[in-house]
């Protein structure tokens, strides 16, 4: 270990300041009025209108229909994030289980096909995906929002690698102990994968939470608005001499940050464990 010098601290402090400043700016600015922000720029000090702003953002009925509150958008985003994370974990675990433990033809080819889809981002297949969902009448539903994006090459790959590192004798011991494929999966593999699941959960939750393009396409009904769209729509009201509600946009942004941060904080220890060691 190298001895830590003051310069190292300086670098760290500057680095964290650099990373934290935008968050602090957003938080502080959200407590000022829109007019103040418009005329004076961003604030580094707390203002006085924070309470009202957040209350308004959460409960004010906006949008064309006048039904969309911040709370609703927060809920929608949560559904997206949780649905993504849970769905992706379940699906990719099962896919990886099949790939690793069942001897079927073309398993390797199938795996590489799944793996290659990693190279194709959502944007490439967004039109066909939309078409399929439209044909299935799944536009403007949570199912349509979540289902098409559930297949996860990343998740499948991670779980495949993990399952391959589980010693074969464990499977054999379970077979002798009378555990069938389903029992082995549920009783042995799932508990062993806990840390892996936590790691994937964080990644996928944030991925789902941050989705913008897909909800934009899939939903026209305002009751399915997510936070990301909410922020955008606040800033879009640039009509005539109207000043956008910067404070509200900032407040929403701050709110949008809380759940991912919470997820990371809660799962952090398991996350690190999952990426570095396995519980074997």
């Amino acid at each position: 270990m190298q001895k830590i010098k003051p310069f190292d601290h300086l670098v760290l402090i500057l680095g964290s300041l650099f990373l934290c400043l935008p968050v602090v700016l957003a938080l502080m600015s959200s407590t000022h009025g829109a007019v103040d922000i418009h005329s004076n720029g961003l604030y580094l000090t707390p203002g006085t209108e924070g309470w009202e702003t957040y209350k308004k953002v959460l409960t004010h009925r906006g949008g064309f229909t006048g039904d969309v509150t911040g709370l609703l958008m927060l809920g929608n985003s949560l559904v997206m994030g949780l649905g993504f994370a849970v769905g992706k974990i379940v699906l990719s675990m099962m896919a990886a289980y099949a790939l690793v433990y069942f001897r079927f033809r073309f398993a390797t080819i199938l795996f590489w096909m799944i793996f290659f889809t990693l190279l194709l981002p959502l944007e490439v297949r967004i039109m066909p995906s939309y078409q399929v969902m439209a044909d299935l009448h799944l536009l403007n539903t949570y199912t349509g929002l979540i289902l098409p994006l559930l297949a996860s090459a990343t998740g499948t790959f991670f779980f495949r690698q993990f399952f391959r590192s589980v010693p074969d004798e464990l499977l054999e011991a379970a077979r002798i102990d009378g555990a069938g494929p389903v029992k082995f999966f549920l009783d042995v593999l799932v508990p062993l994968s806990r840390t892996m699941m936590a790691a994937i959960f964080i990644i996928m939750f944030i991925y789902g939470w941050n989705q913008y393009l897909w909800p934009l396409l899939m939903t026209t009904d305002e009751s399915f608005y997510t936070l990301m769209r909410g922020i955008k729509s606040i800033l879009q009201v640039w009509v005539g001499s109207q000043i956008p509600d910067y404070n509200e946009a900032f407040a929403l942004a701050v709110l949008a940050m809380i759940p991912p941060v919470a997820v990371v904080v809660i799962f952090q220890r398991m996350f690190i464990k999952g990426l570095t060691e396995s519980d074997k």
Binding site: P167, E169, L170, E172, A173, A174, I176, D187, V188, P191, L192, R194, D279, K280
Partner: peptide
């Protein structure tokens, strides 16, 4: 059966 690497369920 008793295995060389014990094959105990770690969890």
């Amino acid at each position: 059966m008793v295995f060389q690497n014990y094959a105990l369920y770690p969890h």
